[in-house]
Computed example of a mutant assay.
Amino acid sequence: MKTWTIYLSGEIHTDWREQIEAGAKAANLPVAFAAPVTHHEASDDCGVAILGAEPNKFWHDHKGAQMNAIRTRTLIEGADIVVVRFGEKYKQWNAAFDAGYAAALNKPTIIMHQDEHAHALKEVDAAALAVTKTSEEVVEILRYVINGELKGYTDQQQAAE
């Protein structure tokens, strides 16, 4: 049986990744998860911590962004499905970039956000194969896509249809 690789991109201030991972485990789905570095300071400072300090904040951020891109691009390219969550508190420009990169690679994407971001994310949503609000919905999408199982339907009901 194939193990599906799911890349979890987006906001880092809530436990949505852990919720999806726990739900997938409870559903016994054959999945492996990957994600960007979610320790905010480490992600911001990786470039200067490894390659040396930069007096200009632009170059400080640039070095970190380039290092993070090595990880992000590699993991998105290797993913079977990319899930991108847009949180309520911050504007996640990097998440929008990841969604666009995944779309350019023709990766199936699932986008997560609340209604208040629907207008701002309309182009991102239009490129996605599913738009959700909750981690539970993501798990149910994965259950259906991977196992062909729809919650609430028995095997007999599914076979009869």
Rank of each mutant, 00 (worst) to 15 (best):
T14C: 07
E11Y: 11
A128W: 05
A99P: 11
S9Q: 07
D115I: 11
Q158C: 08
Q19S: 12
A120D: 13
A126P: 08
E77C: 05
H60D: 09
Q114M: 09
A118G: 04
K133W: 03
K107Q: 04
G10E: 01
A99R: 08
H117L: 15
Q157T: 10
I50A: 06
S43F: 07
P55G: 15
W16P: 06
E77P: 00
Y153K: 13
Y7H: 15
A130E: 12
K151C: 05
S135K: 07
K122F: 08
K133D: 10
F33K: 01
Q66I: 09
L29Y: 07
K107S: 04
E149V: 15
L51S: 10
A120W: 08
D44E: 13
E18P: 06
H40D: 11
H39I: 05
K107A: 02
A118V: 14
E137R: 05
V145Y: 13
M1P: 11
D45F: 09
G152Y: 13
Q157E: 14
K122D: 09
Y101I: 09
W59V: 12
D44C: 11
A49K: 13
D155V: 15
H39L: 11
V139D: 01
V48K: 07
T154E: 05
T134W: 01
V138Y: 00
V145D: 08
L105I: 03
W59A: 13
S135L: 04
V37R: 09
A104F: 04
L121G: 02
A130T: 00
F86M: 05
W93L: 12
G47M: 08
I81E: 01
M112T: 01
A120C: 04
E54M: 11
L142D: 00
Y90H: 15
V131Q: 08
S9V: 12
W93A: 13
A34K: 15
A24L: 07
W93C: 07
N147M: 13
C46R: 08
N147Q: 15
Y7C: 04
G148P: 02
Q19P: 06
H39W: 11
H113C: 02
P36I: 06
